Computed example of a mutant assay.
Amino acid sequence: MPAFVLVLNAGSSTLKYQVVDPASGTASVRGAIERIGGPDVRDHAAALDTMQGDLADHGITAAHLVAVGHRVVHGGPRLVAPTVVDDDVLAEIEDLARLAPLHNPPAAAGIRTARDHFPDVPQVAVFDTAYFAGLPAAAATYAVDRELAARESIRRYGAHGISHQYVAGAAADLLGRPVTELDQVVLHLGNGASAAAIRGGRPVDTSMGLTPLEGLVMGTRGGDLDPGVLLHLLRHGGLDVDGLEDLLHHRSGIVGLTGLADFRDLISAVETGDPTARTAYGIYCHRLRKYVGAYLAVLGGADAVVFTAGVGEHSARLRTDALSGLDRLGIVVDDERNRAPSTAARVVSIDASPTAVLVVPTNEELAIARQVAALLT
């Protein structure tokens, strides 16, 4: 019988799940429950009831599971590897909500509920920040009061590490080279977005920081911002701390600039000539190009620039526009390859491009399942 891992990704209003065989890489069951908190799905416990019904319909019971693996965004300074969840670990995940207020609370709710639903199955947390725990001090350290930073555990933690690590390995497979021999710039572009500079399979810099707010322009988050803007809004803009948090998490980025919540809608508006959409798109591409250039400098050049996640995998126009003008840095996209419809991992640069441009679909569920299986064996 295959040793299945049930992988859960719990959000505030959604629960995504897959039953994964880490050995074969196949997912026998996958699904998503939405609108948690509404009249049909009251809470995460009700969501797991619905999920268990779906698993039963596919012949999957607790007896088929070696573990339940949970994606958790922030592990802080201590949780830097896949970890079997006990009461102390769960309490620490909940406490780290101060650094990931949108992500850690629903993850903790999902873990708590899964422990009730699968009391005899190990619960394992896999952390998005863990991949970046070994960042060089020059990249991880903020230039603020040293004693204050140490007391408050202030450093660059990064995020999307599960995806960055998986994609870096898959990119190496695509190129037929060991990941330890490659320098890569990986761009995880979804509603949340981050860049990572990866040398020999290990990250040396990443765009997200203490929290998932720093770095690239995202769906509802603006990324890099002069901290003086926040001081100005506190003193003169009528916003308190809660108002700033709402602004930074929900009313910035593409939504803040245009009111559009879907990147596909942004592209459509750009193509119809909407000036507001064009400005927002230009900001998005400009920030992305800046990070690519910065990370090429950090790495001293790269073997590959890799696009992944929903926007990165599916927007050919973005890949072209974000990398335009980088020919002198050895990056040349092949327009025909780039626009050819495909869902497979592929090269979209010209053969003569010194730096390959790749599109590599991410698979965080498989990555989590494999990390869980490795921990338990």
Rank of each mutant, 00 (worst) to 15 (best):
V5K: 03
T14K: 10
Y17S: 06
Q18E: 14
G25P: 12
A32I: 14
G37S: 07
G38Y: 10
D40Y: 01
D54V: 15
A56C: 02
T61R: 08
T61A: 14
V66E: 13
G69C: 10
V73S: 05
V85T: 02
D88I: 00
D88L: 12
E94I: 11
L96F: 15
H103T: 12
A109Y: 01
G110H: 07
T129Q: 09
Y131E: 03
F132M: 07
Y142S: 13
A150F: 02
I154G: 09
S163M: 07
S163E: 11
H164F: 01
Y166A: 11
V167T: 10
A168P: 00
G169L: 03
G169N: 13
L175P: 03
D183P: 00
G200D: 06
P203I: 09
G219H: 02
G219I: 04
D226R: 13
P227A: 08
L260W: 09
D265M: 01
D265F: 02
Y281G: 11
C285L: 14
H286F: 09
R287S: 11
R289I: 09
G293A: 06
G300M: 10
T308A: 05
A309Q: 00
V311N: 04
G312V: 03
E313L: 02
L318V: 13
R319K: 06
R319S: 05
A322G: 10
G325P: 11
D327S: 11
N338E: 07
V347E: 13
E365R: 06
R370Y: 02
R370P: 04
Q371I: 00
T377S: 15
